[in-house]
Design a protein around this nucleic acid. Structure first.
Ligand SMILES: [Mn+2]
Ligand SMILES: [Mn+2]
Ligand SMILES: [Zn+2]
Ligand SMILES: [Zn+2]
Lengths: 127, 127
DNA sequence: TTGCTAATGCAACTTAGTTGCATTAAATTT
DNA sequence: AAATTTAATGCAACTAAGTTGCATTAGCAA
């Protein structure tokens, strides 16, 4: 099952994510879309798109939630096990295609892991 | 340089962290200490203890800031490069002694990494 | 014991996100 | 092309985490 109702607001958000390669924070989307839709709507659509396997989310260093498009995820299964990077200079936040391994823990049952990196992005590192 | 002024509030917080092996969220400390000190004071002391190398912090899945004591860090250098774990059942949040490696990124300059795990803690996994 | 100023308390504010409920508008049926 | 159904939205009010400015207090050293 995909999107239940393709409303104007849903389409707006889908288009935004289709046309970007970076991650976007919910807080910032709320600001940018304030003229066209209510903030509650933004939060609810992001929620919905995530549970439908079209977007995935992660917590940033700033304590706000970031979203990025999924590749090959579904309502049933998310497989976005990749690190995320936040540039300390320009704020650019991106999904990394790199892999990472979860340490072996004898006593814990690890179900989900999130690797968050910061430093300078490709562009800022060259300045 | 250690603590500048060992006030009653600072001592209270130091004692709390000395007597626990887990991480504590600032939000929760504010609640627990509401009777004895102002929330602003809690946030400011946590900040100060971190910059003095006595505590380190990380962002939880819940979007709140968590603190735990350091071992062998100083005002000049923090060396708490270890994963953190949050139990999805009991909420227990802990520092893991395990090591983890940061993926090689040709274009980015990684300065700091945070690995956050969730699942079931030792106690909850056995139930 | 005095004086300096780091640290605290308080009130007001900000920012991110949530909730309940009435209304609207996709999608489906007639 | 209406009428119907109900998912989705808007709005207002609220919560939770954290911050800021400023007056006051209390460590601590002289
Ligand atoms: Mn991603
Ligand atoms: Mn730790
Ligand atoms: Zn950058
Ligand atoms: Zn547990």
């Amino acid at each position: 099952m995909g999107i239940v109702r393709k409303t104007k607001s849903v389409q707006t958000l889908l288009t935004i994510f289709e046309n970007t390669e970076v991650a976007l924070s919910s807080a910032n989307l709320v600001k940018e879309l304030a003229h066209s839709m209510n903030k509650t709507t933004v939060y609810r659509i992001l929620d919905r798109l995530e549970s439908q396997g079209l977007l995935h989310s992660f917590q940033g260093f700033d304590g706000v939630k970031w979203y990025a498009k999924c590749q090959g995820c579904s309502k049933e299964h998310h497989n976005d096990r990749h690190p995320h990077f936040q540039c300390r200079d320009c704020g650019k936040t991106e999904c990394l295609s790199a892999d990472f391994n979860i340490p072996e823990l004898s006593n814990h049952k690890v179900e989900y892991a999130q690797l968050l990196l910061t430093g300078q992005c490709a562009a800022c590192a060259q300045l």
